[in-house]
Design a protein around this nucleic acid. Structure first.
Lengths: 334, 334
DNA sequence: TTGAAAGCGCTAACAC
DNA sequence: GTGTTAGCGCTTTCAA
């Protein structure tokens, strides 16, 4: 396309149609009272000239960008990809486009992204599974007119929230309890390292202790939330602690990484080692043996986040908290 | 955050700092010659007031949005997720944000998305694995100042392209030839249905015939590019044609769906049925047996698309064509 | 039902 | 080095 081409503006259409630019503007936006005659006339001319409203000009005066930002730790993690799909579909249906800000599990990048963002860029922001601390996150979110977080509790005045587990670490504890019920005693934990307050090994040990389940802190290991790290950290964990009878993973990806390592180390799953994941991604049901994990409606989590954001963008600042229950899916690894 | 809050503008900073708004503008953009003294003075005031440039206003005058659109068939397909990651990382490094337009494998939605987009919304567009026909796609792309496609050939004046196989269907043919070499004769094909010109069963049969390999068209089946469809269509294909010795899949997702169906039907892989996929997603290496498929650098494909787009956005309209070679990865299914 | 004027917040171009 | 002026293309407001 030629770069020098004059962009068709309201003025061009108005001149050509023999009306004022206000009339054209009204026709294009379906606002105000316009005679049927003028309306069609303007429509025809606009069509012929190929008129397209200039988004920046409109935004400058209306202060609405029709854009929302979605901040995600890692879109190559199927868990997040599905959530994003839900976010985007719903936003699209309501006439919004999504600015994707993938942070690659890098807290610094998340911080930079959030700092860069402002209300002249987007009308609202969805922050999914933030990897930065409340101390950093909350002040940044406060600067935005409309905010929804996924998997992060927020002061009620900052934004609405969507959660996929009752409390952080809730699934890990459920998993351990289930493993205990099935007779496993030496239960390890692959804790996700996320730059933000997460459910630590300490929390894991303490919580289970209260339930009468004893966990050796040495059975717990910190691990970045990606497959390769699960494989590497999992291998080290199993080598150092061959006595482990079971491991709970922070997400399915790391659990499957550990499972691969376990198989290479000659462990027989589930007899020799039991495994529980956390978010039921497709791959988990397809490996052998299939992974016991927690299922939740990821698409709907994303869609709900979009809906809650929409409400806020429309001026309804009621705090809302949606909880999507997780369901233990028992498969071949336990 | 209070909605009524007055946004800090250049004027506010200028007044407060006792200079003109142009001086502030220059300081904020690091353009023109400004005395060190004024510069720091302005910076301090801007900082104190929390000044943030208004993106819409800037866009209105500069005609640059600093946004690129990335149109993708399905971000829950790990193949596309990785490409998108490459696109976004590279764009981000260059100061651009990415507008994600996921079309859910729906050609109508892709058409709608592309029609809606214009140069007041984004500075450039990357269309990945378009599912609409050239007749629809090319005219829409021509309206954009800067375009790059992934996996789609384009007239040289429309945009640059990034390809992950030599020709459409190239990998399927390579796969069939490889299967033939390993002794398989009755080779089926799970052809991706994509609303756009794809490599059809007819092409598959014809091309292989020229190589001396005979394929019965009844062994070929059309299939939407998602796991579930691969499972369903795969099951029907195998039930109707138990004589099949091997199947080539249009992508890894459908091939793995078919593999699941095959296992349920009691087929032993690879002895009783051999399988070849097409894009080596993580899951393919983790299933049992691991899938023979083609490997390519998906992240780099996306990153390259961003780079080529950047060149065009900077006014270098040289047509460029990048080809990322695929590599056959032989694993347990053959 | 239509139009004129003003201005959103910024930068380009030119003056001083 | 710094300021003034003139818009970018649109919608809001008010007048006709």
């Amino acid at each position: 396309m030629t770069k020098e081409q004059h962009r068709v503006t309201l003025e061009d259409v108005a001149r050509e149609a023999g009306v004022s630019i206000m009339t054209v503007s009204r026709v294009m936006n379906n606002t105000g009272r316009i005679s049927e005659e003028t309306r069609t006339q303007v429509r025809v001319v606009a069509e012929r000239l190929g008129y397209r409203p200039n988004r920046a000009a409109r935004t400058l005066v209306t202060k609405r960008t029709m854009l929302i930002a979605c901040i995600m730790p890692d879109i190559t993690n199927p868990y997040f990809a599905e959530i994003l799909q839900g976010v985007e579909d719903t936003a699209w249906q309501e006439g919004y486009n999504v600015l994707l800000m993938n942070t690659n599990e890098n807290p610094d990048r998340e911080y930079a992204v959030l700092s860069q963002l402002d209300d002249s860029t987007v009308d609202g922001v969805i922050a999914c599974s933030s990897r930065i601390s409340d101390e950093q996150l909350i002040p940044l979110l406060r600067k935005h007119p409309a905010v929804v977080t996924i998997n992060r509790v927020l002061p009620k005045d900052v934004g609405s929230i969507v959660l996929s587990q009752r409390h952080i670490g809730h699934r890990a504890v459920l998993a351990a309890k289930y493993l205990y019920q099935t007779g496993r005693r030496r239960i390890g934990y692959l804790q996700l390292v996320r730059g933000s307050s997460s459910f630590t090994s300490f929390d894991f040990v303490k919580t289970l202790e209260a339930e009468g389940i004893t966990i050796d802190p040495a059975w717990c290991r910190r691990c970045p939330p990606v497959w390769k790290a699960g494989y590497e950290q999992g291998k080290m964990l199993l080598e150092e602690h061959p006595e482990l009878e079971a491991v709970v993973g922070g997400n399915d990806l790391v659990t499957l990484g550990l499972m691969r390592a376990a198989i290479e180390l000659g462990r027989k799953i589930p007899d020799n080692l039991a495994l529980v994941g956390a978010d039921d991604i497709l791959i988990s049901s397809q490996v052998t043996p299939p992974l016991t994990t927690f299922r939740m409606d990821k698409y709907e989590i994303g869609a709900m986040a979009s809906r809650l954001l929409l409400l806020r963008m429309q001026g309804d600042y009621t705090y809302r908290e949606m909880f999507f229950p997780e369901e233990l899916v028992i498969r071949g690894t336990t």
